[in-house]
């Protein structure tokens, strides 16, 4: 029991503390060996994230394989088909990427024909959702929504060259909104978030926040 606790809790906490202290010190102390070591730690992190992306791919295969089985048994054929398409795409992309390289004409063709077109279409489709939501939801029901609508309308107008070309005052109003309202209120929020981040970081280093370890036995 004791070795399990050491393995699951104390070693990760000690590693977190040591790495956190080293990286934090590097921010304040200009010392070449420390900087070199910190850069190495950060490069470890890059490699780990790359590994996690591969691991996520494996997890995706596992998850959707189970989903296909479940949907087939429940006779949800269309749902099963969607998972099959996803897995087929995953295998094709991985096979072409590893086998022929990401700079191969085949990989680029796959990307330009499918990824780029579908991604751009999906993003462009949000225009219609936004336009629809703007038309159906934004109503002057109260003073607050009236102010919201007014600011929204000014922002839309000021971001459209057609209006600002003929009514330069809109640009001035937008600058006032951006600099006078948005910038300083958002700056206050950013400072608050920063202070919260510092507090969270200190608590994590001192092992007072252990949520990132997942569920561990006490």
């Amino acid at each position: 029991m004791s070795s399990s606790r050491t393995y699951k809790r104390q070693i990760p906490l000690a590693l977190t503390f040591i790495v956190g202290i080293i990286v934090s010190l590097d921010w304040f102390i200009k010392w070449d060996p420390l900087q070199t070591f910190t850069t190495t730690l950060m490069n470890f992190q890059i490699v780990m994230v790359a590994f996690m992306m591969g691991f996520a791919g494996v997890n995706l295969v596992y998850l959707h394989s189970r989903r296909i089985q479940r949907n087939m048994s429940e006779n949800k054929l269309f749902d099963a088909l969607l998972s099959v398409v996803l897995l087929a795409c995953l295998f094709i992309w991985v096979a072409v990427g590893i086998g022929m390289g990401m700079n191969s004409d085949t990989y680029k063709w796959l990307f330009n024909t499918f990824n780029q077109s579908l991604s751009a279409t999906a993003y462009a489709a949000t225009l219609f959702y936004l336009a629809s939501a703007t038309y159906r939801v934004l109503r002057i029901r109260s003073t607050e929504t009236g102010i919201l609508l007014l600011v929204g309308a000014i922002t839309i107008c000021a971001n459209i060259p057609l209006f600002t070309a003929y009514f330069p005052i809109l640009g001035t109003i937008l600058v006032w909104i951006s600099d006078g309202l948005v910038k300083y209120s958002y700056r206050a929020i950013t400072i608050g978030v920063g202070l919260g981040g510092i507090l969270m970081g200190v608590r994590t280093l001192l092992a007072m926040e252990t949520g990132y370890l997942g569920a561990t036995e006490e």
């Binding site: 703007t134 609508l149 309308a153 107008c157 459209i160």
Partner: peptide, 24 residues
């Protein structure tokens, strides 16, 4: 693209105004 942005924004704005006129 800026002309397209202008026209798209103009249509959205017109419908926003129409929707609110209808509401009133």
């Amino acid at each position: 693209l800026s002309d397209m942005l202008s026209m798209g924004g103009l249509v959205v704005l017109i419908f926003l105004i129409l929707g609110n006129i209808g509401w009133f």
